[in-house]
């Protein structure tokens, strides 16, 4: 149950109203996220699917904000919407540019795929719903940027460095792989 810090304790109504607002926002963004994702999955047009993914990921970012993860939300929008999806769009254009008539994708294995996905969904929902989570009452907080920065430079320094190296390797590897065909006869 979300609440306010102790020094300016809100009245019940105030708190209730805030809660309702956050609940409304949660459901709105949930609908956006899940709806866009479903559209993406079932869309015949791959470009449409890509744009649906943008919306879905943006919705996830909004959910992050609702979870008081402002820095992660910003990163999500920067990296996914600004980076990865542009990359995917480029990929679509580079690979399917010549075959405009094939722009409509066709699905395979539809029956086992839907059965399995449904089973997984039921399974996960059941597990998440049935499990007794030891939750705490979440505290309101201002920004996470400072704390994340401190952690990144202290206990997460080594993973941070490794992540940097990983990115470098990935960039070089991607460059190498995508340019090799020029050397081929």
């Amino acid at each position: 149950m979300p609440g306010k810090p102790a020094n300016d304790k809100p009245t019940y109504d105030e708190a209730n109203r805030l809660m309702e607002l956050s609940a409304i926002l949660f459901y709105a963004f949930t609908v956006l996220t899940v709806g866009s994702a479903a559209y993406m999955v079932f869309s015949k047009n791959i470009v449409h699917a890509a744009f649906a993914l943008i919306f879905s990921l943006s919705g996830v970012a909004a959910l992050y904000v609702l979870l008081y993860a402002d820095f992660v939300a910003a990163t999500q929008i920067l990296v996914y919407v600004g980076g990865i999806l542009i990359l995917i769009l480029f990929g679509i254009m580079l690979t399917t540019l010549d075959f405009t008539e094939n722009l409509k994708t066709v699905t395979v294995n539809m029956l086992p795929a839907s059965l399995l996905s449904g089973a997984v969904a039921v399974l996960l929902l059941y597990v998440f719903f049935a499990a007794e989570w030891t939750t705490i009452v979440p505290a309101d907080r201002d920004g996470t940027m400072y704390d994340l920065g401190m952690m990144l430079m202290n206990e997460y320094l080594l993973p941070f460095q490794i992540a940097g190296v990983l990115l470098l390797v990935a960039i070089i590897g991607a460059l190498l792989m995508s340019t090799r065909h020029k050397n081929e006869p």
Partner: peptide
């Protein structure tokens, strides 16, 4: 590849 992925998910559920 996708057939293999189906095997994997199916096996995962069975194991679960």
């Amino acid at each position: 590849v996708q057939t293999y992925f189906i095997y994997i998910v199916f096996s995962f559920i069975v194991l679960f």
